[in-house]
């Protein structure tokens, strides 16, 4: 039962990642691309936490935490750059 739940969750997340990737490639402005990148980061963090459960490795949760922090700082820096304040 748990196996099926994890299959369903990973399939939905993969579909979501594909859609954000399409927006990342298509996006008419730079802002659209950054929004898509932000969504990709959030989905990636969730996927890492679920993978940590699948492989039973606690350390992957720390990887997810660092990834979340770096993604947040990256988006903030790009936003400041687009605004022209950097």
């Amino acid at each position: 039962m748990m196996t099926y739940i994890i299959y369903i969750a990973f399939s939905l997340m993969a579909l979501g990642m594909i859609m954000s990737a399409i927006r990342f490639v298509k996006g008419p402005t730079a802002g659209d691309r950054v929004v898509a990148l932000d969504t990709l980061t959030t989905i990636g963090v969730s996927a890492l936490v679920l993978l940590a459960y699948v492989f039973q490795r606690f350390i992957y949760v720390d990887v997810a935490l660092v990834y979340a922090v770096l993604g947040f700082i990256g988006v903030i820096v790009i936003a400041r750059y687009l605004e022209g304040a950097l």
């Binding site: 969750a9 954000s20 927006r23 898509a36 959030t42 969730s46």
Partner: peptide
């Protein structure tokens, strides 16, 4: 959670 992640990405699209 995975359903809402999917819906968010669908909204982005």
């Amino acid at each position: 959670g995975s359903i809402f992640l999917f819906l968010g990405a669908l909204g982005i699209y």
